[in-house]
Amino acid sequence: MTEPRKARVATVSLAGCFGCHMAILDIDERLIALMERVEFDRSPLTDIKTFNRRCDIGIIEGGCCNEENVHTLIDFRKNCDVLIALGQCAIMGGLPAMRNAIMHSADPLRECLEEAYLTGPYLRNTTRLIPNDPVLPLILDKVYPCSEIVDIDYQIPGCAPSGDIIFSTLVALLDGKFTGFERETLRFD
């Protein structure tokens, strides 16, 4: 009889700051126990950039702010049995979603780009242009939470979520015993 294989975990950071990936490292020494049960597949941690086989768990950090984020997220949904939105950006857009409404503008994306590249008081942009190279992913009209693009199975809240909640959720999912979070451990920041 063959040994049961390790669960395959894929991760990606979309419109996020990699803080949630850092938070995965906050699992600390329990990572050793976790790594006996899982292996990382497509992930910035392994530098594997495409799916070559189906994965058991996909972990998404960040929402969708450009075209490439959307394609990557759909690719994760296709290739992962269970998809987890990790952190507030993946869940509701998070900090990048500030550009959706808080600019108080009829055209928030234009205003955001103009301030970032043209009119901001502390700028040095010698080209005087908003970057528009065809190789750059097309930026979306607004930042979308992951659940608006694909079905998300579980959401782990936090900015960033604690190592404890990530670890306990992953272990419960691996055991097939996840029934929800301890309310006392929930944080939205």
């Binding site: 507030q88 509701m92 998070g94 900090l95 979603a97 500030m98 409404a101 808080i102 900015c159 939205f188 920041d189």
Partner: peptide, 8 residues
Amino acid sequence: GNHLCPIC
């Protein structure tokens, strides 16, 4: 509303 907990 616009409730962005991480920046509030």
